[in-house]
Design a protein around this nucleic acid. Structure first.
Lengths: 145, 145
DNA sequence: CTTGATTAGATTGTACTCAATTTAATTGAG
DNA sequence: CTCAATTAAATTGAGTACAATCTAATCAAG
C-alpha cells in the first residue's frame, strides 16, 4: 500500500490552496464596504497607490500591484469613467501613460479611511500571527520577481 | 501634520494586499507544469479533490474548493470536454450533479504527481514558516464560513 | 396531500487575470 | 545617423470569480 507518491497531491497537504482560498475570502470581505463606494477590490488597491502618489505611470503602478497592462488598461479606463483619475501620455516619453488623481479621486480617500479598520474587525488574527503572515508573504513576493 | 488617519490605507500596511498578490504569484508558478497537461490551476485543484474521491457532488466539490456554481458549472463542463470527468444527475435526488473521474482522469494523477515537488522547489520557505503560514491561512479560512 | 420554503445547479452580466500578440516610441550598437 | 532591439500600452482570447436571478426538485408544516 505504497501511495506516498501521491501524498503531496492531497488538497490538505498543499500550501498553495489555502493561500489561494484565503486570499479570495479576505478580498471578498472588502466587498460590502467597497460596493458602497462603487469600486472593486482591484480598483481600491490601485486608488490606494494613487492616494500615496497622486501621479504615477501605469508601468510603476503595475509594478507595485504586480499587475500587467491586460488588467490595468481596462481598470484605469473604468476609474477614469467614474471620474477618479485622468489618463494622458507622458510628454518626455510618449510610451508612458500618466495616471493622475482627480479632486473627486482625492476626496474618496476620506470615505475609504475607515475600511481597513472595519475589515480587520472581520478577520481576527493574533498580532504575532499577523506579523508572521505579513513577513512570510513578502518573503514569497520578493522571491518571485 | 496629523495623518495617522490614513496610515492604514497605505499598501505597505495592508495584510490583504500581500495575501492577494502572493496567492496570484504562487498560483502562477504552477502554470508551466499545468499547461503541459492542458489544465488550469482551478481545474487542477478540482482534479486534486477528484483524485481523492473519484465520485463527488458538485455541491461538495464547491464546499471543498470554496467555489460556487457560477465558477464550477463551466469548469466541470470543460473537464468533461477534455475527457477527465463525467457529469450526471443523482438518481436519489435529481438536484445533485454527480461528477466522476474517467479512466483518463485517473491516469492524469500520475502525470501530476511530481508537480507539488517541482513547485515547492520554486518557492523556498523555511519549514517553520511554511508550517506557520499553513496554520494561519486555515485560521482565516475557518473564520469566514 | 398540498403548497410555501429551501436547496442545487444553471444562467447572466460584470470584472479581473494572464498569455500572447500588436503597435508605437525610444534606445543603442556600429 | 540608422536600424535592430527594447520598452510601455493596448488588444485579444480563454478562463475564472462572484453577485444576482432563475429553474427544477425536494422538504416540511399544516
Amino acid at each position: 500500500m505504497m501511495d506516498k507518491k501521491y501524498e503531496a497531491l492531497k488538497l490538505d497537504n498543499q500550501l498553495c490552496f489555502p493561500l489561494y482560498a484565503a486570499a479570495r475570502e479576505v478580498v471578498n470581505s472588502y466587498h460590502p464596504y467597497l460596493s458602497k463606494l462603487d469600486i472593486t477590490y482591484t480598483q481600491y488597491i490601485a486608488l490606494m497607490v494613487m492616494w500615496e502618489h497622486e501621479m504615477i505611470s501605469a508601468k510603476e503602478l503595475g509594478d507595485k500591484l504586480h499587475l500587467d497592462s491586460g488588467t490595468l488598461t481596462p481598470l484605469l479606463k473604468s476609474l477614469e469613467k467614474k471620474g477618479y483619475v485622468t489618463r494622458r501620455r507622458s510628454e518626455e516619453d510618449e510610451r508612458f501613460l500618466i495616471v493622475e488623481l482627480t479632486d473627486e479621486g482625492k476626496n474618496l480617500k476620506d470615505e475609504a479611511a475607515e475600511i481597513p479598520m472595519k475589515v480587520s474587525g472581520c478577520i481576527k488574527l493574533d498580532p504575532k500571527d499577523a506579523a508572521d503572515l505579513y513577513r512570510i508573504l513578502y518573503e514569497i513576493l520578493n522571491q518571485s520577481k
